[in-house]
Amino acid sequence: MDFRPTDDQLALRTGVRELLARRFDRAALRDAVERGGALDRALWRELGDAGFFALCLPETEGGVGLGLPEAVLLFEEAGRVLLPGPLVDTHLAAGEVKGAAEGEVVVTAPHGSLIAHLADADVVRGLPPEELAAAEPVRAVDPLTPLHRLPGPPAHTGHAAGGSGATDGTGQAAARFGAAVLLTAAEQAGSASRTVEMAVQHACEREQFGQPIGGFQAVKHLCAQMLVRAEVARTAVYAAAVTGARAEIAGAKLLADEAAVRNARDCLQVCGGMGFTWESDVHLHLKRAWVRAARGPTRAATEDELAADLLAGPSDAPR
């Protein structure tokens, strides 16, 4: 099985990267921070026009007709630039919620007891009106992810509530939940790759004792470890997108969460005092990585699922 992106997939990724570079550069990122994470609806519609949300919809339903291997490439690019908004929820709602595929409608959903971007959402999936009315705003660690807290556990148990969806006889809820976990992992992988680039750039530009700090062994080791984490996480995400196996998705989530959080921390170390300032973007990557890691199944639950699969062994193993 070939896990390398095809030429068409690479062209798709390049197109999205160029779109985001044009429409969500660093100035736009900082503007979004100042707005408290409020969404740019014009950009949201432009993403819809580019097929970001309709990517996995069949062509007969007005979509692009591609699959998870292509979707993870798009979400990886979104993670690189810290694009705000309920991207995963809106993407998964395309074809079910009118206007979501075109970017005309913003869709969000509760994850555990928290809902992101509630004020910007046109549709909230999996939440009764009485619970929605009782949601209270809470201070989020990530300034680009405004949050509301529900008064109690959500009544729903599918993807919208952060459950496994295993009770769905058709398997659609389980597949949707797995896609949500994997696309979030793709965002984490993109963030991990971007912090590697930030650390290397600073290490090449910052000088101490008459030479770039990248020439010092300790800094080299930090950057090398960051690169290994990012590449391993990306490979795991790509592989899980091709196989669609639950255990592969669980492994990708663990690796991507670790890569995003630890790489952001190591990038802070490479950047030194500059990295801890509000003007630096490193802290935004770390905070978003924390928020993403808290979505979906907990680390312990993911580890248990992966361990159970490993202990079960191959399905065709002799009993």
Rank of each mutant, 00 (worst) to 15 (best):
M1D: 01
M1I: 12
M1W: 06
F3S: 15
G15P: 03
L19E: 08
R23W: 00
R30Q: 06
D31P: 14
A32P: 05
V33Q: 10
R35Q: 04
G36P: 01
G36Q: 10
D40I: 10
R41N: 07
R41W: 00
W44Y: 04
R45Y: 00
R45F: 04
E46H: 15
G48L: 08
G48W: 06
G51I: 02
F52M: 13
C56N: 07
E59Y: 00
G62V: 10
L68N: 03
A78T: 12
G79A: 02
G85W: 05
L87I: 08
L92Y: 03
L92A: 13
K98R: 10
V105K: 14
T108W: 10
A119P: 00
V123R: 12
V124Y: 13
G126K: 03
G126P: 07
L132Q: 03
A133R: 11
E136T: 14
V138E: 15
T145E: 12
G152F: 03
H159S: 08
A161R: 06
A161G: 15
T167Q: 11
G169M: 10
T170V: 04
G171T: 08
A173H: 01
A175L: 08
A175G: 06
A185Y: 04
A186R: 08
Q188C: 14
E197N: 10
M198G: 05
H202R: 11
E205D: 09
E207W: 12
G210S: 05
L222Q: 13
V228A: 11
T235C: 03
Y238P: 00
A239T: 09
G244C: 05
A247S: 12
I249N: 01
A250S: 15
A250I: 00
G251F: 07
G251H: 09
A252L: 12
K253D: 06
K253Y: 01
L254C: 10
A256Q: 07
A259V: 02
D266C: 06
V270E: 04
G272I: 04
F276S: 09
T277C: 01
S280F: 02
S280Y: 01
D281I: 08
L284I: 01
H285F: 13
R295F: 03
D304K: 15
A307T: 07
A312C: 07
A312R: 13
R319G: 11
